[in-house]
Computed example of a mutant assay.
Amino acid sequence: MLKIAIVNDSPMALEVLRRLVSQTPHYQVSWTAQDGAEAVARCAADLPDLILMDVVMPIMDGVEATRRIMASTPCAILMVTASVNRYAAEVFTAMGYGALDAINTPAIGLQFASEGGKGLLKKISAIATLIGKAPRRSLLRDTPRPALVSRRSRSPLIAIGSSTGGPQALAKILSALPATLDASIVVVQHVDEQFAPGLAHWLNDQTPLTVDIAQEGQAPSPGHVSIAGTNDHLCLSPSGKFTYCAEPQTTYRPSVDALFASLAQHWPQPDIAVILTGMGQDGAQGLKLLRDAGWRTIAQDRKTSVVYGMPRAAFELGAVESVLPLEAIAPACLDHLSKIPY
Rank of each mutant, 00 (worst) to 15 (best):
S175P: 15
A179C: 09
A126L: 05
Y97N: 09
I127E: 00
L121K: 15
R137E: 10
R137D: 04
G98V: 15
L174Y: 01
N104P: 11
A179Y: 04
Q206W: 13
A176S: 15
G198Y: 11
L110S: 12
A99F: 09
Q189E: 09
S162N: 10
F92K: 01
M95R: 13
L110A: 11
P106E: 03
N104V: 03
A94L: 02
L181S: 09
S138N: 08
T143M: 12
R145N: 02
F92D: 08
S184E: 06
K122L: 09
N204R: 14
L130E: 08
P106R: 11
I173K: 00
P208E: 14
K123Q: 14
A134D: 13
P208R: 08
F92Y: 08
L148A: 06
K133H: 13
V187L: 13
L130K: 11
R136F: 06
I127P: 05
P156H: 10
A169N: 08
A134S: 13
P146E: 04
A147M: 04
Q206M: 14
S114G: 08
A128S: 12
F195V: 02
A171Y: 01
F112G: 02
V191F: 05
P156G: 08
T143H: 04
I124Q: 07
L181G: 09
P146W: 05
H201K: 14
Q189W: 08
S125L: 03
T129G: 15
P106K: 03
L140R: 04
A107H: 11
L148H: 00
I124D: 02
G166R: 04
E115K: 12
A169T: 11
A107R: 10
N104A: 15
R136H: 10
L148W: 00
T93M: 05
L199C: 02
G96M: 12
S150G: 07
H190Q: 10
N204E: 15
A147H: 00
I127G: 00
L203V: 07
G116D: 05
T105P: 05
E193G: 03
R137I: 07
D182A: 15
P167H: 11
A128Y: 03
A89W: 00
E90K: 02
Y97Q: 07
G96P: 13
L177I: 15
F112C: 06
E115H: 12
G116C: 04
S125A: 06
Q194K: 06
P156T: 14
L199Y: 00
F195R: 04
S184K: 13
A99K: 10
P144R: 07
K118S: 06
T164G: 02
A94R: 02
V188H: 05
G117H: 07
V188C: 10
P146R: 14
S138V: 00
R145G: 01
Q194P: 05
H190S: 04
R154I: 06
D142A: 11
N204D: 12
L199V: 06
V191W: 01
I103C: 07
I103D: 00
T207P: 15
G119W: 01
Q168R: 05
Q111K: 06
S125E: 07
A94Y: 07
